[in-house]
């Protein structure tokens, strides 16, 4: 039986923060991918985990995973819309990179 004085903080209790809420607000449309090489211009290192939301609407500066001629590549959305203007290539936005996760030690 608890008989002590009730915690004064009790009515201030809030849920602890959770990285899932921050990084994956839409679990059903979010996929994870690993960077197969370094992309210095985007500050992405080989092995980084990319959080990719297929449901997000990309804006010009967003990094997207695109499928160009049946191959996955990483690029800015604005660049993609430029290169798709003239050419006959089959281009599709696979998803928008919304975060990068970089474990600092081997998990």
């Amino acid at each position: 039986m608890h008989t002590g004085f009730p915690s004064p903080a009790q009515s201030y209790h809030e849920k602890s923060m959770n990285l899932q809420d921050l990084l994956v607000p839409h679990p059903e449309t979010t996929f994870f991918m690993r960077a197969g090489s370094s992309y210095e211009e985007y500050c992405i290192q080989k092995g980084d985990i990319m959080v990719v939301d297929r449901g997000a609407q990309p804006s010009a500066k967003d990094l997207v995973i695109a499928v160009v001629n049946a191959r996955r590549c990483l690029m800015r959305f604005e660049k993609l819309s430029r290169c798709s203007a003239g050419e006959e290539d089959a281009i599709e936005v696979w998803g928008t990179v919304t975060s990068i996760v970089r474990p600092m030690r081997v998990l």
């Binding site: 996929f31 994870f32 991918m33 690993r34 960077a35 197969g36 985990i49 995973i65 996955r72 590549c73």
Partner: peptide, 12 residues
């Protein structure tokens, strides 16, 4: 198992 194992993430 692209979506259920950290060891087997698809690469880009």
């Amino acid at each position: 198992p692209h979506t259920t194992s950290w060891k087997h993430l698809p690469e880009c």
